[in-house]
Simulated assay, not measured.
Amino acid sequence: MPEDTILSTSGLTKEFAGFTAVNGVDLKVRRGSIHALIGPNGAGKTTCFNLLTKFLAPTRGTILYNGRDITREKPAEIARLGLVRSFQISAVFPQLSVLTNVRIALQRKRGDNFDFWRSERTLKSLDEDARRLVEAVGLSSFQALTAGELSYGRKRALEIATTLALDPEMLLLDEPMAGMGREDVERIEALIRKVSKDRTILMVEHNLSVVASLSDRITVLARGQVLAEGDYAAVSKDPRVVEAYIGSGGGHGHH
């Protein structure tokens, strides 16, 4: 396995009753890159993502992370190894403040139990780290608000902050821009670019203009198989990709 590959799959397959959702996918994600998984609706992107993050067990095939076989590992175990998924499972507590949400995520990373109140010093250092993360995602002026009071795009920024609190080596983003207006999309796009500086990102994303501007490499899935791979310029010109998107009525879901 080449040094610079952080995550790879070989022959990754998921069959549901009478239906193959993911069919023999070989994926290689280069360390330090932003890699996008795209494709029309029903292409198997979400299933593929769920296999990588261990929410589903593959029917066949293997998944390697940093050269280690994680095919049978549990989600909590791969999170400990540094492979962390954001958004759909992030625990953001709507009734707690932005800062408190980030601090709780930092405590989880440390595996602290909740008698942390005892040590004033621990609390102070957690607060400093939490403030730094809140600032990193552009939420400093909102840190006293409860998470529930934030706009949709800013909630997403908070979710990224709580994910970064776990200090992932590789971040998996499931449709980070879904349901966002243009201003929010631009803000989250800038945020993803910023947090990608010292980590690897794999994202499923419908918004192709985001994919075009953010991704180093793109894997296009159609009917559960890899249709094409390369940078945006290459895959967007590939006649099979054009056909797959047009043939499925655009396949942009909500865009």
Rank of each mutant, 00 (worst) to 15 (best):
G179R: 03
S236W: 01
Y232D: 12
T146H: 11
E159Y: 01
F142R: 15
R85P: 00
G82M: 03
D216G: 06
G39Q: 07
S151T: 11
E73S: 11
R217N: 13
G24A: 06
V22F: 05
S97R: 07
F16C: 06
T47R: 06
R217E: 15
P239R: 04
H255R: 07
S90N: 15
G247W: 06
A161C: 10
D231G: 14
V204H: 09
T163C: 10
G247A: 10
L56A: 11
L164G: 05
V134Y: 07
G44M: 04
D127E: 15
G224Q: 06
L37A: 07
L227H: 12
R108C: 10
G230R: 02
R118W: 06
E128D: 14
N41F: 03
L171M: 11
G224P: 10
E169R: 09
N41K: 05
G148H: 05
D4T: 08
L96T: 10
C48E: 15
F87Y: 14
L227F: 09
R121L: 09
E159H: 05
D112A: 10
G224W: 02
S209K: 13
K197N: 08
G250R: 07
P176N: 06
V25D: 15
G11R: 12
A136W: 01
P168D: 04
L172N: 00
D174G: 06
I188C: 04
A234E: 15
V98F: 03
G138M: 02
